[in-house]
Design a protein around this nucleic acid. Sequence first.
DNA 1: AAAAAACAAAGAAAATAATTCTGCGTAAAA
DNA 2: TTTTACGCAGAATTATTTTCTTTGTTTTTT
Lengths: 173, 173
Amino acid sequence: MIITNVACSVVEQAGVNTMIDETSLKILKILQEKARIPNVEVARQMEMAPSAVLERIRKMERQGIIDGYEVRLNPDRFNRRQVAFVQVQVSADNTCAGEAFAAIPEVQEVHYVAGDDSYQLKLRVADTEELGRILREKITQVNGVAATRTATVLHTYKETAKLPLLDTVHIKE
Amino acid sequence: MIITNVACSVVEQAGVNTMIDETSLKILKILQEKARIPNVEVARQMEMAPSAVLERIRKMERQGIIDGYEVRLNPDRFNRRQVAFVQVQVSADNTCAGEAFAAIPEVQEVHYVAGDDSYQLKLRVADTEELGRILREKITQVNGVAATRTATVLHTYKETAKLPLLDTVHIKE
DNA sequence: AAAAAACAAAGAAAATAATTCTGCGTAAAA
DNA sequence: TTTTACGCAGAATTATTTTCTTTGTTTTTT
């Protein structure tokens, strides 16, 4: 028995109940391994016709299941060896500190976290010297910044944006 | 005057001095915006012949400047709305804790950080309930874990793996 | 339960794109 | 200056994507 997609093409939009069957899931797993392989190659691995695979991929793109495709550049080759995490305490009245941090190019991530009521930043820089410069000249200059706590990374064991697609996924919303 | 690549094709390997000129940099910027556009489209934007653009891309792939291409999946659609950062204190004698954390599928990042002599983990889970379960059943089960401190994310302002390619980049090693 | 509608997939054909090859011009090295 | 290496354009070849049509299956409706 084959489970097929249900009720997802009526309105192909965010905010509608959607389901992913095993076939689409397998396609995503293949693309997660190597996103820039040709469609025919995905089809070969799927043992399906290229047209059918393409149809599914396009559909997932339209549905916003696939958000896009990214080049992964080697940070080593761009003088961006050093990763650092910075926790920033901001006085309660400043509501746009998050956007200000996000505007700094060396800042790859900006999260507002519960617990300490602070921002968690992830930076990628050349070395600790540049880190210091950005802290001094950019981060502490943002309006309302009270204190920062920096942790430099000595070694990275894992760093991926991959979502675990282990089990069958039923997606709502 | 056009600056061309120098001394990079003698030995195309990691560990060799390399340079990136403005042309290659511009290609990378285009690919960083949308990695799955066809080569001819890149060529159009570059106002160059497709063969020349392809040559450069292939070269950067060989040199390890381009590490690969990734699908970006929408975490919302896969029950992975919740991001959390976990700081883990590990007793000094356990040297393979990092690998153990990395093996957990919900853990997207594992860094060993200076300062507190601890591991910084980034998790992506469905909700706080799942977060609790993974902390209890997986993270604290790793040999040598002494303490954990979790910060759940309330809002993400920025989250990208993009490297800032602002200025001209000269790359060594 | 039967008919109608909706869907997914295969296959063929047409349109596009990738790849290879050749030749030319320019820049660095001898 | 001559040699050598390199990068790029353009044409030819191969490969891939995309569209369209057909068919079988599942779901919904009557």
